[in-house]
Simulated scan of single mutants.
Amino acid sequence: MVIETLPARLDPEEAKRVRQERLERIGSWLLPLLIMLFAIWLWDRICVWNEIPRYILPRPHVVAQTLYTDAALLFGSLLVTLKITFLSLLLAVIGGVGLAVLFTQSKWVEMSFFPFAIVLQVTPIVAIFPLINIYVDNQTAKLLLCSWIVAFFPILSNTTLGLNSVDRNLRDLFRLNGATRWQKLRHLRLPAAMPYFLGGLKIAGGLSLIGAVVAEFVAGSSGQSSGLASRIIEAGYRLNAPRLFAALILISLTGILIFLVLSLVSHLLLRRWHESALKQER
């Protein structure tokens, strides 16, 4: 007996949905790429049409050439900036999460110390740095402290919010079953706070880079062991616009890379259980 198999066909609505998803996947990377290429082309044309000298606005290929010829100097400075960035982010994670746990364990601790965290957040780092410059002798410690102050608050506030956002029914269930404070923290509060913490981490990652660069600007550090901000200041004094633009591009690309890496970490940690990372059904 011959069994005829009919080709599986999608209904019009399903086919439209599949096409829409395919277009969105392609457009998510194609459109930004096209706009970026157009912006680079327009930048180049503006320089040519207006005959702008390279010490004011260099053409894109001049910046790319400078990025290649000065790679040793620029990437060496990038490593210095990255060291400050990641160390400050690590300290912000340790301090922010640790203090957030203390806040959730004792309302008295939260009421006592949270206002000081807000003061650090709302006070401009350029206003705090003169005090840091007086009391801290080590140049690296100065930069690290400035960057940490900028990155600390998002992790503290987001993690505290997450730890306090546990479902009341689940809290009552743990209490009825005689769970200890440590068990409630480990099995209930910390998993509930994970999406909030990761959201704060993505914010703090970019802020730690910004803090490191701003701290270098304020500190005015110079020399072979200085970061990218010092290269920008030096290039500005010497009217070396190609190097200045090359350093700016390195900072921007580094910030984008940090955000993408932290977004990937967040997705990998949440993809199996949290609504924000699960694939949405349409």
Rank of each mutant, 00 (worst) to 15 (best):
D137H: 12
L176I: 09
S106Q: 10
V122R: 07
N164Y: 09
V97C: 11
L207R: 03
D137C: 04
L87K: 07
Y135G: 03
F113K: 03
T104W: 06
P191I: 12
L87V: 12
L207G: 01
G211D: 09
L82G: 04
K83H: 05
V150H: 03
D172Q: 14
L143Y: 08
G95H: 00
W148C: 11
K142H: 11
S165K: 03
P130C: 10
V119P: 06
F114K: 10
L173H: 04
F197C: 02
L90W: 09
S147P: 00
I132R: 05
S106C: 09
P130W: 11
G199R: 05
G95R: 00
L188Q: 07
F114S: 13
I134G: 06
L156Q: 01
L170W: 06
T140Y: 15
V136E: 08
F113T: 13
I134L: 15
F152I: 11
L145F: 13
F174G: 01
L207W: 02
V119G: 08
V122M: 11
I132E: 07
L102Y: 02
A141I: 11
G200F: 01
T81I: 03
L120G: 08
I118V: 15
N138P: 09
V122I: 15
Y196M: 05
T81G: 05
K83G: 12
A204E: 00
S147M: 04
L131D: 06
V93Q: 02
W108I: 14
L209I: 10
A127T: 10
Q121N: 14
V126K: 05
L90M: 12
I149G: 06
T159Q: 02
A219I: 04
F86G: 03
L131V: 15
A117S: 15
F116G: 05
L185G: 04
A127N: 10
N164M: 13
S221C: 09
S88Q: 10
V213I: 15
G96H: 00
W148F: 15
V97F: 06
G96T: 00
L74D: 03
V119D: 08
L143N: 07
C146Y: 01
N133F: 14
W182G: 07
M194I: 10
